[in-house]
C-alpha cells in the first residue's frame, strides 16, 4: 500500500468514526433523557388516587341569545380516570333553572381539559354550580 493510500484509508476510517460518534452520542442522550423522565415519573408518582377539580375558566360569552360558560377540569391526583361526568347547574333565586352534562373519555394524571356549558338564561342573574359527578378507573 502506498503512503497516500494509507493516509486515505486511515482518514476515511477516522472521519466516519467521528460522524458516527457524534450521532451515537446524540442518540444515547435522547434515549437516556427518555429513560430518566420515565424514572422521574415513577419516583414522584406515588400512590395518589384521582383528584378531580373543576373551575370556571374565563369570561362568559353571550352569542345569539346563548351564554357560554367555559370551564377547566384538572386531574390533580396520581392515577388516570375514564368516563368523567361533569355537571353544570344554573341556579336563579335558589332554584335550578337549567342543567347541562358533559362526559370526558379520558383524563390522565395531571391532565387538564377545557369545555363550556351553554345556558339560555343569563348566568349573571344567578350562579353557576359546576361539579364532577363520577368517573371510572381504567
Amino acid at each position: 500500500m502506498t503512503q497516500i493510500s494509507k493516509i486515505r484509508s486511515k482518514s476515511k476510517r477516522k472521519s466516519r468514526t467521528f460522524a458516527e460518534k457524534v450521532t451515537f452520542v446524540f442518540s444515547v442522550l435522547v434515549v437516556s433523557i427518555l429513560v430518566s423522565l420515565v424514572l422521574i415519573v415513577w419516583i414522584f408518582k406515588g400512590e395518589r388516587p384521582p383528584v378531580l377539580e373543576i373551575a370556571r375558566n374565563g369570561e362568559i360569552r353571550a352569542v345569539n341569545g346563548q351564554f357560554y360558560v367555559p370551564f377547566v377540569l384538572t386531574n390533580e391526583g396520581g392515577e388516570n380516570v375514564e368516563n368523567v361526568q361533569v355537571v353544570g347547574d344554573l341556579e336563579i333565586d335558589g332554584k335550578t333553572e337549567e342543567s347541562g352534562e358533559q362526559s370526558m373519555d379520558f383524563l390522565s394524571a395531571g391532565e387538564r381539559e377545557e369545555g363550556a356549558f351553554i345556558f339560555h338564561r343569563n348566568p349573571e342573574d344567578g350562579r353557576v354550580m359546576l361539579r364532577v359527578a363520577s368517573y371510572k378507573v381504567p
Partner: peptide
C-alpha cells in the same frame, strides 16, 4: 492535498450518516 482529502473524507462520513438518518 492531504488536508483537502481528509476534509472531503469527513464530509463523506457525515453524508453517510445523513443518508442513514433520512
Amino acid at each position: 492535498s492531504e488536508r483537502q482529502y481528509r476534509f472531503r473524507m469527513r464530509q463523506f462520513g457525515w453524508r453517510d450518516e445523513l443518508k442513514f438518518l433520512i
